[in-house]
Design a binder for these strands. Structure first.
Length: 602
RNA sequence: UGCGGGGUAGAGCAGUGGUAGCUCGUCGGGCUCAUAACCCGGAGGUCAGUCGUUCGAAUCGGCUCCCCGCUACCA
């Protein structure tokens, strides 16, 4: 295989730390699929970055008396630290507050404008004379003129469910400071989704047979039932990417219009940082390339409708603005495997109430693979799931440690003691040995096809089931008995088991990269499987920003061959002294962790 | 209100017309190489509720209830 695979992960909003829900929702599934394709020898580009613009950040800035830039600057390096420690292997994790992203976003805007898909409309918006700026509908509340509910949002009353006309709202007030806003006319650009609708619809229909139902029904279903309406793509805001037109000062591109462009701009930035300014086209104008977008259910529409609409609407205009003499259109999403949400101990995760398990905090107490294991097992692929500390404890001790970790440990430590630290030379294998190896070998196909379809829980469960098969095999052959009567028999059993473990190491690697890497090292392979992440400071006209990069230079995946195959183990090869891959947890952590929840943090 | 997703043993999940499965826990047994780990066996479910279609429904249709999302303080 030598495919180009783009792994595009939702851009976390830089106004709060990242918690387990964010991780299991998008970053981790993206990383698993990225690592799988790297092992297959495919050319993977995995990108994301901090979403540094938008009203939410300006609001938080006002509340804390800081600048929006300061808010973003606080959280962005923390995201990078988290991903590095958790092994989320971004080729580039950057930010929307970069010269490159500004420029690319404005090119997208101008391409759409040029092709006639952006139209100007004047509408009335709430304006706060106190703050001297426009307010989004959701920041204005008042009394519902239909049911009398006193805390209705200006666009919709949650009590009676009616959509409201802003002008009729009684006693409007700003949710920020309680002051009275007024309605003012303002002009904005709208993306013409109604004209693009037929193209979007065929794009979706082509993917109908493999997209998740929640994503498909919310995008294609909406088109088929109510149709698409123009959607505004600019806002009255100072903080963000300026609309690149004369007379539009004080207006910015709407944060969701430009955040999705980050997938494209970060691909370009990755090339620039690596001295290959044109390489982004390998993933963006090569129609054979496949792109996977990992997001949460809350922004399905943006990725399944709005972003494809931007891509379709640009035609070859963007590539032309990137100075390609033979411009081409851009690649549409191959899959958008949106996840549902993860709750915490039965309640919705809430950052402000500290009802959350924060990624960086959890990494201070638990190994990355222990967290990754549970986050995969509890991934909300089909429905909302729950992070439960008791279950984390059980899954870690009874599955990760007991089934897989113990398998590795029992086989390698027994071999270490009885075969002078060398992989035994088995001679002719028995039928039962070959049967086991066939079973495990089939896992490459089974686990792989699950990952291809982004069925990650099923993929991991299948790998774990295979580890159980090896445990059963050991119990039948009992090399600890064999060695007392016939050393050659024990050699066959242990060789077979180590061979199986070496293959399972690969199958577990996308999910548990750190421990697979250590097992790989114990088995005395020269090169590592994967590369390592590094942090770099990049300067441009907007200042400087940290990025997370990936160095594959000294790794096997760099070589581009397919490692997702049953390589035959070298007989008689010395290996390194085994050590436990995972830590058994004490049950007391369950109570300790539960006590932390809901308390104010530092 | 509308659109969409989901509600299956104690927990987590699979299962889109034909005797209800998997993992963990639990109970009993075996084994002892291993982080008291591993292996075998048993118990445990009116498949949210209800009405219907069918020889037969977790699976199809109607209605009801509950949880969640639908352009962003909150993923």
């Amino acid at each position: 295989m030598n495919e180009n695979i783009l792994i595009a992960v939702a851009w976390p909003y830089a106004n709060s730390d990242i918690h387990v829900g964010n991780i299991t929702g998008s970053h981790l599934p993206g990383d698993i699929v990225a690592r799988y394709h790297r092992l297959r020898g495919n050319k993977v580009l995995m990108v994301s970055g901090s979403d540094s613009h938008g009203t939410a950040i300006t609001i938080k800035a006002d509340q804390t008396g800081q600048t929006p830039h300061a808010i973003y600057s606080h959280y962005h390096p923390r995201f990078i630290e988290l991903f590095q420690r958790l092994g989320i292997s971004y080729d580039l994790f950057t930010s929307t507050h970069t010269e490159n992203h500004f420029s690319i976003s404005q090119k997208v805007f101008l391409s759409l404008l040029e092709n006639g898909y952006l139209n100007k409309y004047v509408s009335k918006q709430w304006y706060s004379p106190v703050l001297k700026r426009f307010l989004p509908d959701r920041y204005v509340e008042g009394t519902c003129y239909i049911c009398g509910n006193e805390s209705a949002r200006s666009d919709q009353c949650e009590k009676c469910g009616n959509e409201l006309e802003a002008e009729k709202l009684i006693n409007p007030r700003s949710k920020i400071d309680g002051s009275t806003p007024e309605l003012r006319e303002t002009e904005h650009f709208f993306l013409d989704l109604s004209t693009l609708e037929p193209k979007i619809q065929s794009f979706l229909k082509e993917r109908e047979d493999y997209w998740r139902p929640n994503v498909l029904r919310q995008s294609l279903g909406t088109i088929q039932s109510v149709g698409l309406k123009p959607t505004s793509v600019t806002r009255d805001l100072e903080w963000g990417i300026p609309v690149p037109l004369e007379g539009w000062e004080g207006k910015c591109l709407y944060v969701w219009f430009e955040a999705v462009i980050g997938y494209l701009s970060s691909s370009v930035e990755w090339g620039l940082l690596n001295g290959q300014p044109d390489i982004w086209r390998d993933w963006w104008t090569n129609q054979e390339a496949r792109s996977f977008y990992f997001i949460g259910k809350d922004n399905i529409t943006f990725h399944a409708v709005t972003w494809p609409a931007e891509l379709l609407g640009m035609g070859d205009g963007f590539d032309r603005r990137m100075e390609n003499p033979t411009p081409e259109p851009l690649v549409l999403p191959y899959d958008v495997p949106a996840n549902e949400f993860m709750n915490l101990e039965g309640k919705k995760i809430s950052g402000s109430q500290n009802w959350a398990v924060w990624g960086l905090d959890a990494l201070d107490r638990y190994d990355s693979d222990a967290l990754r294991y549970y986050l995969t097992v509890a991934m909300p692929e089909n429905r909302d799931t729950d992070w439960d500390w008791e279950e984390f404890f059980q899954r870690n001790n009874n599955e990760l440690v007991a089934t897989w970790g113990n398998l590795v440990n029992r086989v390698l430590s027994f071999t270490w003691k009885n075969f002078e630290g060398k992989i035994p030379t088995p001679g002719q294998l028995r039928d039962s040995d070959l049967d086991l190896l066939d079973t495990i070998k089939a896992g490459f196909e089974l686990v792989g096809s699950h990952i291809e379809k982004v069925e990650l829980k099923a993929a991991l469960a299948e790998a774990m089931r295979l580890a159980t098969e090896v445990n059963k095999y050991l119990d039948v052959h009992a090399p600890w008995f064999e060695i007392k009567t016939d050393r050659n028999e024990a050699a066959k059993s242990l060789f077979t088991a180590i061979q199986a473990i070496d293959w399972l190491k690969i199958m577990f690697a996308p999910f548990l990269p750190n421990s697979s890497e250590r097992l790989h090292q114990i088995l005395a392979y020269e090169k590592s499987l994967f590369g390592t992440s590094f942090i770099q400071e990049v300067s441009d006209s907007l200042g400087s920003h940290q990025v997370l990069g990936l160095d594959n230079e000294k790794s096997l995946v760099k070589e581009g061959s397919d490692l997702w195959t049953a390589e035959v183990l070298e007989e008689g090869k010395p290996f390194n002294q085994p050590a436990a891959l995972y830590k058994k947890l004490d049950h007391s952590i369950v109570e300790e962790e539960r006590l932390r929840l809901g308390k104010p943090s530092d």
